[in-house]
Design a protein around this nucleic acid. Sequence first.
RNA 1: GUGGGUGUAGCUCAGCUGGUGGUAGCACCUGGUUGUGGCCCAGGAGGUCGUGGGUUCAAGUCCCAUCACUCACCCCA
Length: 433
Amino acid sequence: MKITALNGFKDIVPGEVELWQKVETAARDIFSRFNFSEIRMPILEKTELFARSIGETTDIVEKEMYTFIDKQITMRPEATASLLRAYIQHGLHVQKPVQRLFTIGPMFRHERPQMGRLRQFHQMDVEVIGAQNPRVDAELMAMGAMLLEELGVTVSLELNSLGCPACRPGFRKTLLDFIEDRYEALCDDCKRRSNTNPLRVLDCKNPSCRAQVVEAPSIQEHLCQECSDHFAVVQKGLQQLGVSYSLNKFMVRGLDYYTRTTFEFITGDLGAQAAVGAGGRYDGLIEQLGGPKVPGIGFALGMERLVLLLQQKKGAETVQGEMDLFVAGLGETASHFVFPLVHALRRKGLQVAMDHEGRSLKSQMKQANKAGAHYVLIVGEAELEQGQAVLRNMDDQKQTDIEIGTGIDKLSQSLLEICKPLDKFSDILTKRI
RNA sequence: GUGGGUGUAGCUCAGCUGGUGGUAGCACCUGGUUGUGGCCCAGGAGGUCGUGGGUUCAAGUCCCAUCACUCACCCCA
């Protein structure tokens, strides 16, 4: 019986992993432009952490977490809770009034997999802790938009405010009254939702529910003065930064801790999984987890979804590797000579490969070609005797003789000089992706 | 947890109303070139037809079960 990866768990193989590297590299670049620092947390946490932050009655906590029940530990289903735990544990608020942190890594949820949704999935998570100013909300969204733009994926930004503990309960009541009048017209899921999480009724996909809900009261019109002012400045900030967005009064968040600003980067190209990234403000959460009374805001980008979008773009051919030099030794004597030479060249910084299987020159040339070698050094019995080898430029097919009787150090030095000027490796690689 | 679709070579897939698994494409290996890549040509290797039962003289094909994958619902990045 063949052993395969678990359902919902995926290998990222060569040819695909380059896209992931591209996404990560772009993200690290942008995050550092915005003065964020990386933080890495463990994947396992005490179950209680997630129950307290995400919400005891959310689907995630109730049925989607990978938990070792006997040990009361859980594989993180999202990053924010762990990151805040680390922030509190290390007293990072004392070091700086405002912490700008990001983390990249795997998350785990036991859901049924589908396009863009796996059981182990990867997020890039960004959090600003200690900043109250609504301009920071706008700045964060602008950063997300900038990253997505640089990656070349087209998304739209949708924005809403969920209010705060002062005004949300009032709206909730208003909404419940509205739903009450139409209860019988709603689908079974929405009937259930109206008890558990009435806001969820607003973004039901069922067309008849949508029709019912069109006239629903908008939370944006029921915000308290502070929340309303905050929301206005967020929008003003987005306009200042030239970030286009649209208001969506139906947008709701799945996690309990969100307050005020919430937003999603949406695409139409991923089937049912429209959100490429999403986040919002969580002003009470840090205190609730036993930390200082500071506000926070953040968002997460789904890496699988980003990679899928990149793959969908035209000309998304698999990335071809490159190397500086392939050394072809013909026969046992030549291979014996070449073996330490390859090592010496690698030590000097060249990307070098050789064949160890005693294959024909033709076969080795094929290997070199496939590997994207720019040069091939051919060392045969005849060359060895004459103290010479042939250096072939694979790009223009020109061959030159090169002295090899002078010792490996000198030989590798001259090869280094020939091969290195061509080393625009990283630029070329970046462009090809 | 609920529903639909699909399982044939490493990958993409043919295989009609049951009658010996495809000269299919890509990829791989070897040769055409006594020591020279890409293109072309020739050859080669690669399969318990997802698995287990059943019907039948005969099952990749029909039936049942099971597993896996996949899309959607729920939920969510």
